[in-house]
Design a binder for these strands. Structure first.
Lengths: 193, 193
DNA sequence: TTAAATCATTAACATTTGTTATTGTCCTTA
DNA sequence: TAAGGACAATAACAAATGTTAATGATTTAA
């Protein structure tokens, strides 16, 4: 079996039982894409019609606010899915852009394929539900953290959850992710030392 | 047909087609509850084993942070569902408490019932997916708003989205929802006038 | 109906965070 | 390899937000 496609099957198996026969039929529609560092794979304002599975590399989900400033919303790590899921599902213009932060290898899942999955795969709807629930939990805990933790707390927690992320990502993106200025993050790091 | 149960059927019909026969079988397990103002219907630390449908009244979802301060996370309006959904699904201690802000009439949906819904109702899994997606979108836009809008912007937007909410809810809960101090909210309101 | 509690407002002050500008380092690329 | 650009650190100052305390109004409950 094709190696990269095996990788996404494994990821999906964390959510539902995958029937081999169904899968063989389904999986042929995946396509692979290699993308150089710093390239834009989704542009704010366009409709997101693909879910990206990060086989290798690292993505940054961000948007430009009313003042023209970039805000980093999320980092998509290896073996996770990435998209503007709302744009994807509702076919409306995306609020986010997505770019590669490293040379990356992606598996592409176009919109039609998702819906075919709901029909073809015995547990397709369940997979959709579990993925929506997972990101729901993720966002929920992100809001919880914003309400309860200081920027420094969140920095430390990020460092703990993804130990090498801080080495892989320019610091001002981290600041933006924490919703503070790069200058302030630099100050905070010194204080704690 | 029973009137309150008809109300929740109508709400669910916004998500999936409901087959009358299935529904008649399913709906008999709902129970109703009238709750006085200011009563706690879910307590932080306990497992949330019921989803509440707000037939009438208003709920506040909140939690107590490490400093012992209450943070208001969400207001549950009429004809919407309320729960700590993560606690509910994973059967783990809730991060939130839920209280009534007004005398309320609730429809209770216990955990077993949800799962029976996944099995009994033809579109049960789909309903689960759509609900998870809806709250996912809600949280997503909440985070987006935190990143892009000033507290005053968010206050105005809240006022626009739920025109009578500000009259129904003590102002310090609104401040807490906006993640600012009550004193600061009072100041902001004066500045804009 | 009255006393107590809750609440919104305001003022004064403290803290946090943002902005701008400068400098030195490192990386990129022509 | 040299020049330009991106980046992190730092300082000085400005703006936003929090904290505490006092006051008056409203609501709640005995």
């Amino acid at each position: 079996m094709n190696d990269p496609i095996d990788q996404i099957k494994k990821a999906i198996s964390n959510y539902i039982d995958v029937d081999d026969l169904e899968w063989a039929d389904y999986a042929q529609d995946f396509s692979l894409k290699s993308v150089k560092k710093k390239e834009l794979i989704l542009q704010q304002g366009r409709i997101c019609n693909t879910v990206f599975f990060v086989r290798k590399g690292l993505l940054r989900v961000f948007f430009v606010d009313a003042n023209g400033e970039e805000k980093t919303f999320h980092f998509s790590m290896e073996n996770t899915f990435s998209a503007d899921y709302e744009s994807f599902l509702k076919k409306k213009p995306s609020n986010y852009s997505i770019q590669t932060l490293e040379d990356s290898e992606l598996i592409l899942m176009p919109f039609e394929m998702l819906h075919r999955g709901y029909e073809i795969l015995k547990n397709g709807e369940k997979l959709g539900r579990l993925l929506a629930e997972e990101y729901f939990f993720l966002f929920s805990s992100k809001i919880h953290a914003i309400y309860t933790q200081s920027p420094m707390d969140r920095y430390n927690q990020l460092n703990k959850a993804y130990p090498n992320l801080l080495q892989r990502v320019p610091q001002h993106y981290i600041a933006s992710f924490l919703n503070i200025s790069p200058v302030h993050l630099s100050r905070l790091k010194n204080q704690s030392a």
